[in-house]
Design a protein around this nucleic acid. Structure first.
Lengths: 232, 232
DNA sequence: GCAGAATATATTGTTGACAATATTATCGGC
DNA sequence: GCCGATAATATTGTCAACAATATATTCTGC
């Protein structure tokens, strides 16, 4: 096995990139493992080990580590190796502050740009069926719906830069959301908030939609602070 | 020359990193050249060429390209090479939207955290002397003052995540600021706005400070739109 | 048995050589 | 002279071997 190894493939997600390399696949898989806590914070990542597992050279693993580090998912200490970044309470709070202004902007731009009908699909998704699933603690369904909401908004917002920044933070947001959802009552509250936001967006009420989204994050923040002892 | 080559050195800027590698130095220098337009958009970056110039191996250059790409300063096309990213009008407008919420947040957090006296130094810096320099089109002095303002705020805000996001965008902000300053009248207006923001910050008026900073960016945005024909 | 030095092992950091690909130059036919 | 095919060159992509460093183990004197 030698030489170049880039398979043509569209990434699907509004991407400019049309090729996916070994490095990209590595990054994706390692991201997944870290966010899913299969590799909990503090875990060591050994280059050779991963190189063998994925049948790639150490250089690819090393490249992947580079972007993972840039994204703040791992920490690299010279000559010692890479460990999964530990998320402190402080950085969670910082993350909420950032999300408040950024996701608020996202919703504002999306509301400005999209026609009212654009939101019908999402409004349908956030319907009675999902409501029941949330009550029954079907977190995967809820998580998928939230991801869909996010992606639909980003597409409508139409700002590649905003999309990039949100994407940079996404891993950490996901890691936190997964935990926060476990707190009794939070999921159903978040669900209702999303319904309200969607109504405002369909109504084209730019200001209200942004404010509701910001309130949504602030609410999540206060839940987090209340239960931080359990969540960290 | 072979083997590891990492010189111990503190980065100074509130950094967690305490070492600076060849790659880091490369990134810094290339950033500088790109932002200063010594490497205008569309320029091609050849790996071997740079490797020779900096007396490093191509791998280091390649690593540097990786972070430059992640930062959106260059674009890498497989088997073709790296070119300096071309900044389109759209992305400038996107950048203004982002700056409005992010720098607003920066000022808000900074105002919340810092004591009134903290701002005296900056208020002094943005005094009559600098005002005169701005009138005389001494752009370097103004640019340095703005950079100082930014850094002081980031330090006071105390959010490493926000600092990271702002840093990611900094190169593009700088590139744009340098051009926008050339527009007659913009620099002195921006100067006055910074004075007002600082007054609000010293007064501890969190809401007003944030709103003034946001207005500052919106104002810059409208100047840009008006003169975009000359600036692009 | 234990602290500290010396050795062995594991792991990361770096490089130069080679493969794959794209770009440019050359050449023959019309 | 111009166009397409073919060869030559330049440039990037990948890897495997080696160097440097950190960690674990063994040894030694007490």
């Amino acid at each position: 096995m030698s030489g170049n190894n880039i398979t043509k493939l569209s990434t699907g997600v509004s991407g400019v990139k049309t090729t996916v390399s070994d490095t990209d696949r590595l990054v994706a898989e390692l991201r997944r493992r870290i966010v899913n806590n299969q590799m909990p914070p503090g875990s060591r990542l050994r280059e050779y080990e991963l190189a063998e597992e994925f049948n790639v050279s150490r250089s690819r693993v090393r490249d992947a580590f580079g972007v993972l580090e840039e994204r703040g998912l791992i920490e690299r200490i010279p000559n010692k190796g890479a460990v999964v970044m530990r998320l402190e309470a402080d950085s969670f709070l910082e993350l909420f502050d950032l999300r408040e202004v950024l996701e608020g902007l996202m919703v504002r731009l999306a509301t400005e740009n999209a026609a009212p009908e654009y939101w019908d699909e999402l409004i349908d998704l956030f319907g009675p069926e999902l409501a029941q699933a949330v009550e029954k603690n079907d977190f995967n369904a809820y998580l998928a719906a939230i991801a869909k909401f996010r992606q639909t908004c980003i597409n409508a917002a139409g700002s590649t830069m905003l999309a990039g920044v949100l994407d940079d933070l996404y891993d950490r947001v996901l890691a936190m959301t997964r935990r926060l959802m476990l707190v009794p009552g939070r999921a159903s509250e978040g669900f209702r908030q999303h319904q309200e936001i969607l109504q405002a967006m369909k109504a084209g009420d730019v200001v209200l939609a942004e404010e509701l989204k910001r309130a949504n994050i602030r609410s999540a923040r206060s839940w987090f602070m209340k239960y931080s002892d359990f969540l960290l």
